[in-house]
Design a protein around this nucleic acid. Structure first.
Lengths: 246, 246
DNA sequence: ACCTGAACACCGTTCAAGT
DNA sequence: ACCTGAACACCGTTCAAGT
């Protein structure tokens, strides 16, 4: 967002001075993509950059601010182009783009959904566009807040769960045990679970042992966003007294 | 909440002896409800219990396992009673119960949604009941997985965002600054945002400075789950070739 | 301006030792 | 069986000092 193109005008820094905020953020993203959020530390990042831990604090105020920067980078391409098309199609593309952004940095899923998106830290262009689309769709001012919240929850809700971390599992023993317990579920106590397990195992929340990285829920996601959009359509129609003009 | 009334009484030679797994989990929940997840530590918990940090490891294998225990406790009352009623009503109660459970331990919101619910660690009675309700609703075996995933994502998605933590804000300065930036948003660049701000501020994702604890999104939540249920209704109906028999 | 280096106040977890 | 106590390998962040 902030253009830092002109800062230390053409004066080359020291030979070893490769450090910069974008470089730090990029290196941090690499580390997190590789090792996950729990393993990420300022000290580890400094080591990866070949620098003392405290050097980072010249560019970044603290760890949380650095995480926020990473989320901003990860959110870069979520906004669909504003070209005219049915509002349903625009929303679908928004949802798919957000999912794609999260899938590129799955270890940031919870951070993106439950912290940055649901709160501040998002480019105001995104909410502005969403409001525009909902306005075109025919939502009244009174309904606008709720439709907006439904859009955001639909966008981030499913995906935050889908790419949430599976239980820590260094040797794969948990996955095998859990898998076995699913396949041998007591058919007397849990008849439907037992009957549907062939289709549920590793393809549904709760009954999976891998997350969206290894076992993406593509079809479920598509039907989920379709359901949400149909639900929005109904709410809009129900309040309408006069046919749409545009 | 935690009664630490008995301290030096009852002639116990040792200080504690009150230690047990349920007591540890309860004390941990108290600490997290008060100070949040970031501030929670095994050492702090031990201190609150008047015991050496390593004593906890006799009852709990590690920190993550303890967090999982807390989530299990927090999820206690989410399952609606199985008494007969329309499937839409049953789902609505499930969604509301989950929201209520999270609202009681908001600092566990991300843990509950993005980790335990979306993955393992949930009583199989819950998925069994959901399958039963969806079966009664008329979903085919082919649709079942997707309908199930839609239910889980609807249940946990909105609420995980709603109770996600607002930016760390010790002195309230961020909230004031952000609030001001919302109210003075550039009406030329963001006309819809500016026009709708009176209804959006602190009542919508992104444009709020408090989370669901202080600023619950009750109405939006209700409309969100209604939209999801209507979407499900349509998907079921669309596939149906014969009228329902029940 | 940019980085080193020491230091502070913490962590989770192990292991041996006590009772 | 249950807890103490020392110890290990870490943390984030501050601050003074170097260049």
């Amino acid at each position: 967002m902030a253009g830092r193109s002109l800062s230390a005008n053409t004066r080359r820094p020291k030979a070893a001075g490769n450090l910069s905020k974008p470089a730090i953020v990029a290196a941090a993203l690499d580390l997190i993509d590789r090792d996950g959020l729990e393993a990420f530390s300022m000290r580890g990042l400094a080591q990866a950059l070949g620098v003392y831990p405290t050097a980072l604090y010249w560019y970044v105020p603290n760890r949380n601010a650095l995480l926020a920067e990473m989320v901003t980078v990860a959110m870069q391409d979520v906004l669909p182009s504003p070209r005219k098309r049915p509002w349903q199609a625009w929303l679908k593309e928004l949802f798919r783009r957000y999912r794609r952004a999260v899938s590129r940095h799955p270890h940031l899923a919870a951070l993106m959904g439950a912290q940055m998106v649901s709160n501040a830290g998002v480019d105001p262009v995104l909410p502005e566009q969403i409001l525009g689309v909902l306005s075109r769709a025919g939502f009244s001012d009174r309904q606008m807040v709720h439709a907006f919240n439904t859009v955001i929850a639909t966008m981030a809700g499913f995906v935050t769960l889908e790419f949430g971390p599976a239980p820590a599992d260094d040797d794969g023993s948990w996955a095998k045990t859990f898998q076995h317990s699913l396949r041998t579920v007591d058919a007397a106590r849990f008849p439907l679970l037992a009957r549907n397990m062939p289709r549920l195992e590793n393809r549904a929340f709760i009954t999976r042992w891998q997350n969206g990285v290894e076992a993406p829920l593509d079809d479920s996601f598509e039907l989920f966003i379709e359901a949400a959009i149909h639900g929005l359509e109904l709410q809009r129609v129900r309040k309408r007294r006069t046919p749409p003009r545009g």
